[in-house]
């Protein structure tokens, strides 16, 4: 009896621990960042509008994150331009066009794709992809936005495929039967019936893919070239918010202004991913209510 009660307690704790962890992490990150807001050298306007990121300058310290924000958004957008057609196409093929045997194989392979550690992706970007890009484009350096976007796209595709496929599977078979009874071709069925019916689920799939791409760190750190620079083209090197934190936090003296500003970029990042995930969640809820 006691054993059973204890087990129930442990499981209950595991259940609610997620909430505790999220709150604790947010509080901690925010508490570390807070003192910098009142510092003389720091200005919120500069933080959001300046591209000049000189956290360790001897004479003129500047904390402008505009280039980092632009880097994060540009590489994510480009990644989604690759990942959304590929992911949704994959989901449609898996759920509507492919036979059961091929589907099982494909699902396993896609899961494998999702299980590749991000540092391995980064390694592929740094070595294989960068050489390909230098060979076939006019880019002087292979580590750039295009490289990072391709890597991020490959990482986001499995998420989009598996959630998108679930969304399509959730469309009742009656819809398909009705469509076929009306003489719709397979493509008409997908385009006119299934996509509109599953659009919330598919949007959620895309948003979760976006969340994955925004939050990814190691792969973009290795593949984007890590240059503080507003990109003018897809072959420019960029730096993302995540990569910047990863590169600098380890060695910023604890409690220094630089350290606190990095935590502030963490708060910014947390807010962005929170909004994206919240959006995805609300959209999924919308699906369920129907």
């Amino acid at each position: 009896m006691i054993g059973e009660k204890l087990l129930e307690l442990v499981i209950r704790f595991s259940g609610i621990s997620a909430i505790l962890f999220v709150l604790a992490i947010f509080l901690f990150v925010f508490r570390e960042a807070l003192p910098v807001l009142t510092s003389e050298k720091f200005s919120v306007i500069q933080f959001f509008t300046s591209i000049e990121w000189y956290p360790t300058s001897v004479n003129n310290v500047r904390y402008g994150t505009l280039a980092l924000i632009a880097g994060t958004f540009s590489v994510t957008l480009l990644a989604m331009a690759f990942a959304v057609p590929l992911g949704l196409g994959g989901a449609i093929f898996l759920s509507e066009f492919c036979g059961p045997k091929l589907r099982e194989t494909l699902k396993i392979v896609i899961e494998l794709l999702a299980a590749i550690p991000s540092v391995v992706w980064g390694f592929i970007g740094l070595t294989v992809m960068s050489r390909i890009i230098v060979k076939y484009t006019s880019a002087p350096v292979g580590v750039n936005m295009l490289n990072g976007a391709i890597i991020l796209a490959l990482m986001a595709v499995p998420i989009i495929v598996s959630i998108g496929e679930d969304a399509l599977k959730a469309v009742p078979d009656a819809y398909r039967e009705a469509g076929q009874a009306l003489g719709a071709t397979k493509w008409q069925l997908v385009y006119r019936v299934l996509l509109p019916a599953a659009k919330n689920g598919l949007l959620a799939a895309v948003l979760l893919g976006v969340g994955r791409a925004v939050g990814e760190t190691m792969a973009v750190l290795m593949a984007t070239g890590h240059a503080v620079h507003i990109p003018h083209g897809i072959l420019d090197s960029i730096r993302t918010l995540t990569a910047n934190i990863a590169a600098e936090l380890g060695e910023a003296p604890v409690g220094s202004e630089h350290y606190r500003v990095l935590f502030l970029t963490g708060v910014l990042l947390f807010t962005i991913t929170f909004l994206v995930n919240l959006g995805a969640d609300l959209v999924i809820r919308g699906v369920r209510r129907k």
Partner: peptide, 12 residues
């Protein structure tokens, strides 16, 4: 002691 020009590829 002057600052670096931004836009360099900053390796880890």
């Amino acid at each position: 002691k002057k600052d670096f020009e931004l836009g360099s590829r900053d390796m880890n």
